[in-house]
Design a protein around this nucleic acid. Structure first.
Length: 919
RNA sequence: GCGGCAUUGGCGGAAUUGGUAGACGCGCCAGACUUAGGAUCUGGUUCUCACGAGUGUAGGUUCGAGUCCUAUAUGCCGCACCA
């Protein structure tokens, strides 16, 4: 019986379905294990072959863990709020929900074909009111909490109020509005006037991770700075813990490093500088406290609140002009044009160590959002200060011996101090420590840790997102009663955002709560994806995000697989969100994702035909790729993208090409062998004539005709071949192009393997067969444990070869092979399993254990290496000459038994010690 | 500028603890079966006619290095006026 993958895959998918084979219970005596994929945003284009890469890897691991006896949670869902569906709605008037549901259905259909072991009963959708009820609930908890900096954790805001009532006599004198305003400075979800990234084209504000180089990540539209009243999440409060937590989780170094960069911890000091003629000092942040003796001026950010205090009347006009200019420059312009600009305020500060009077400037090279928005400038040892000093002709005092600062600043933190009073002669590192001690003791300043991480702006002026559970009374926000959740998204007919920032929800009818107006903004994309992994545990629970007992069972995601593109977005927000819930006792783990693997991107592999454009060209002649460097064609051909689906192993399907588009109907070719079509374009093509296409690795996109749809691969080769081939393509974590050359080899292997199950017998297996099997068990087990899925496929092929050569048809061997293959190619494995006479599902089988004894011979145990080589090490004897060593080898009981009179192929000897003998 | 990762045949890539580099697959070559092949099967295939050489380049450690160390080049990714 031939390998009929279509029949096999359909049959077993429906059997699994009928039996509910992938249903996962929250009640089990088994150990829990949670394997999670980053859930997709269902786009209209559907899945391409790049999407399932990570899903296949996690599916293999999930199935393996299940075979090992774990109760495995492996769910899938959809991140279904977001811009594309809304943009589509604006263009067509179709409700985003309609588009989104249609896309989800398509995704599910595609995913089901590939045979994942998801428990679809646990599916979640972020746009489902039953789901976003808990997103809104979490927001209310954040509003009602503050971050206790002493405890370094979130606490109910009521505790803060109680504290103030007892310790702060002014509290009771404040009006309710004043009290609320004060509390707003502490709430974890808070409303404030803040400088935001406003994208007029998208009609919404964006978080920092959604903006890159002054352009929106989605769409690439310009982003400008604007002050707006917005909700934010106090993520920055968790900066220290987010950084610390990285040490206890099993993520790749590069991803942790990306997050560390993003959090951006820097240890320094805050120092107070007096302003000449004023009592109140102002505070700056520096990491180079050692350089105070070299401060020759001060700089404030244009937005700094100190500006108003220090500008003298005679400089007011000049400063106003400068501030105005800064305000109208976009972030992008500021970055692109790094000219030194600035203006003198007219005021002077006093250097607390030298008592020198130093001028105070304003310049946009100082950022308002970092530190205190004010710096002390040390031109000799900071390149930015240096450029500023040169431009405004300010003094530059070198502080490190031997540093030449006539051309450039000396930024390195090394060398001996000079011109620095009591620091003279110290190494920079020691000088920093000593100065910190000094300023602390004298009260000039204190040691301070600063983070680059900012709070996350949480409002979006869009329609297709979670509504806030917030209403307004006297202009102050109040939370909706928890029992009234969810606040469902209202129907509207006009989704268009306004450039003035009025959100689409302003057009909703009756958008009120108890007669008060509801919040018009919606939540950003990361709101729904921040705690979805918790909801899978208990997705039908309408009393809690997740039942505490259920959460205590599953605990956290043991293995999370997804792309690096979420490093500074979702993966930061999720960790923050989880830590917050942990602080309030809603979840039992501090970190959401114990182990994280980033699958590489699958790029497109484009194919090209080469149109002849030289002398006498009629636009219908195409030159085979192997000929384009010939003198008669060189420089006279134009590469044209050709649909990769009509190219097989870089050979063009001539007839399909002519039928592809009208302009190619009359195409003629110069074939790989140099022969040319007659002028009659309708001639048939002789079988041996091949047109070779060129290729390039590019992004997978429609316009390059290199998108490969997994449905087509499943149709042609079956899901099992697709799964194996995606793994075979290369290491999981590396980026690689999708290249169909080679998929035949994998398919051939499955067919050959299948044929071995033709006439199975129950005879006892031979030693060689057992050896082959146990070598495979060892290898596959190691591979899966180490996520080295790509090397498993060759191992299967080798085993198939060996067993095939032995004409093995023993069920004792073949049924174990089926189990080993089950994680990778579940359908064929299931069919193989049943051909061995089994009646249960292979997914309920037990993972075979490698019996090392089968790898032994004559009672001697030899470590088997990957390539099957046998090698062992001896400590004896202490001889040096080759002959003596060989004698010793023969004399050794173990080696002699193995060699059985033969000479070893290779003996590697270190004087006095035999290291390695290869037989 | 700072940080992370990578570099092995014509191609994708193996080499798990430092131990015969090039597994396995593609492609290519030859043969078999075929009216035919984008089918199937068998054998070969790092380079070089050869001697030999060989894991980006140059050194080092080691009996032994693709693997460890130092420098360097190239490519990819992250951060970047963050004081």
């Amino acid at each position: 019986m031939d390998y009929n993958f279509k029949e096999i895959e359909q049959q077993w998918q429906s059997e699994w379905n009928k039996a509910g084979a992938y249903k996962v219970s929250n009640k089990s005596d088994k150990q829990p294990y949670y394997v999670l994929d980053m859930f997709p945003y269902p786009s209209g284009a559907g899945l391409h072959v790049g999407h399932p890469l990570g899903y296949i890897a996690s599916d293999i691991y999930a199935r393996y863990k299940r075979l090992q006896g774990f109760n495995v949670l492996h769910p899938m869902g959809f991140d279904s709020y977001g811009l594309p569906a809304e943009q589509y709605a604006i263009q067509t008037g179709t409700h985003p929900e309609v588009t989104t549901f249609k896309n989800i259905d398509h995704y599910i259909e595609q995913l089901k074909k590939i045979g994942f072991c998801y428990d679809w009963d646990r599916e979640v959708r972020t746009c489902d009111p039953k789901f976003y009820k808990w997103t809104q609930w979490a927001f209310i908890q954040m509003f009602n909490s503050y971050f206790d900096t002493q405890l370094q954790k979130a606490r109910p805001i009521s505790e803060l109020i109680a504290k103030w009532e007892q310790t702060d006599p002014t509290w009771a004198t404040l009006s309710e509005k004043e009290q609320q305003e004060r509390l707003m400075n502490y709430r974890i979800a808070y409303l404030s006037d803040t400088k935001v990234n406003w994208c007029p084209k998208l009609g919404t504000v964006l978080a920092n991770d959604e903006v890159s180089e002054g352009l929106s990540v989605r769409g690439g539209y310009p982003v400008e700075q604007r002050v707006m009243r917005q909700w934010s999440l106090r993520v920055s409060a968790y900066a220290g813990r987010l950084l610390e937590g990285l040490n206890n989780i099993d993520w790749t170094e590069s991803l942790k490093e990306t997050q560390r960069n993003w959090i951006g911890r820097s240890e320094g000091a805050e120092m107070r500088f007096k302003i000449k003629g004023q009592d109140e000092p102002f505070t700056i942040f520096t990491t180079r406290a050692d350089t105070v003796f070299g401060v020759t001026f001060m700089v404030l950010a244009p937005e700094s609140e100190y500006v108003a205090r220090v500008v003298t009347p005679d400089h007011q006009a000049e400063v106003d002009a400068y501030l105005d200019r800064c305000k109208h420059r976009t972030e992008r312009e500021r970055i692109a044009d790094r000219k030194v600009t600035g203006v003198f305020t007219g005021s002077y500060a006093i250097n607390p160590l030298t008592n020198a009077e130093i001028p105070i400037y304003i310049s946009d090279y100082v950022l308002s959002g970092y530190g205190t928005g004010a710096i002390m400038a040390v031109p000799a040892h900071d390149s930015r200060d240096y450029a500023f000093a040169k431009h405004f002709n300010l003094p530059i005092i070198p502080l490190i011996e031997g540093a030449d600062v006539t051309e450039a600043s000396f930024d390195a933190k090394e060398g001996k101090m000079m011109n620095s009073g009591f620091l003279n002669g110290l190494e920079v590192k020691d000088a920093i420590a000593k100065m910190k001690e000094y300023i602390t003791n004298t009260g000039i300043g204190h040691v301070k840790v600063n983070y680059r991480l900012r709070d996350a702006i949480f409002s979006r002026q869009r329609y297709w997102g979670e509504p806030f559970p917030v209403y307004y009374k006297d202009g102050m926000p109040y939370m909706v009663d928890e029992k009234d959740l969810p606040i469902t998204l209202p129907e509207i007919s006009d989704y268009k955002p306004a450039e003035d920032g009025r959100p689409p929800l302003s057009k909703a009818q009756n958008w009120t709560y108890k007669g008060y107006p509801l919040e018009l903004n919606t939540m950003p994309g990361f709101a729904g994806s921040s705690a979805y992994y918790l909801r899978y545990m208990d997705n039908h629970n309408d009393q809690a995000l997740v039942d505490q007992g259920v959460n205590a069972y599953w605990k956290q995601v043991n293995l999370y697989i997804g792309g690096t593109e979420h490093a500074t977005g979702h993966l930061i927000y999720s960790r923050f969100w989880n830590k917050f819930l942990y602080d309030l006792g809603y979840v039992c783990e501090d970190e959401p994702f114990q182990k994280l693997i980033n699958q590489g991107m699958i790029q497109g592999r484009s194919n090209f035909v080469y149109r002849y454009i030289g002398e006498g060209a009629d636009g219908n002649l195409y030159i085979s790729f192997n000929l384009i460097d010939r003198p008669e064609y060189k420089g006279k051909v134009q590469p044209i993208h050709v649909n990769v689906n009509i190219v097989h192993n870089d050979v063009l399907d001539i007839n399909a090409f002519r039928a592809w588009m009208p302009e190619y109907q009359k195409a003629r070719f110069v074939y790989a062998d140099g022969t040319m079509d007659e002028d009659n374009p309708y001639l048939g093509v002789a079988a041996e004539k091949q047109y070779i296409c060129g290729w390039a690795v590019e992004k997978m996109s429609k316009s390059m005709f290199n998108v490969v749809n997994p449905d087509d691969v499943v149709e042609q080769y079956g899901a099992d071949t697709l799964r194996l081939y995606e793994m075979f393509l290369g290491p999981l974590e590396m980026s690689k192009p999708w290249d169909t050359n080679g998929i035949d080899g994998v398919h051939r292997f499955l067919r050959k393997l299948w044929n071995m199950y033709e006439n199975v017998t129950n005879d006892a297996p031979t030693k060689d067969e057992l050896r082959s099997l146990h070598k495979l068990i060892k290898k596959i087990t190691w591979d899966i444990e180490n996520f080295s899925f790509n090397t498993s496929i060759p191992a299967f092929m080798i085993a198939q070869n060996e067993l095939s050569a032995l004409k093995c048809n023993k069920t004792a061997i073949l049924r174990e092979i089926a189990v080993l293959l089950a994680p990778y190619a579940p359908h064929i494995a299931e069919a193989m399993w049943h051909r061995c006479g089994e009646t249960t599902f292979v997914i309920d089988a037990e993972w075979p254990v490698c019996n090392e004894a089968y790898l032994e011979e004559d009672g001697v145990k030899y470590p088997v290496q990957f390539n099957g080589k046998v090698r062992f090490t001896l400590e004896q004897p202490k001889t040096a000459t080759k002959e003596e060593v060989e004698q010793a080898v023969m004399a050794n009981e173990e080696t002699a038994k193995y060699l059985n009179g033969a000479t070893p192929k290779r003996v590697i000897v270190v004087p006095g010690r035999i290291v390695n003998i290869v037989i």
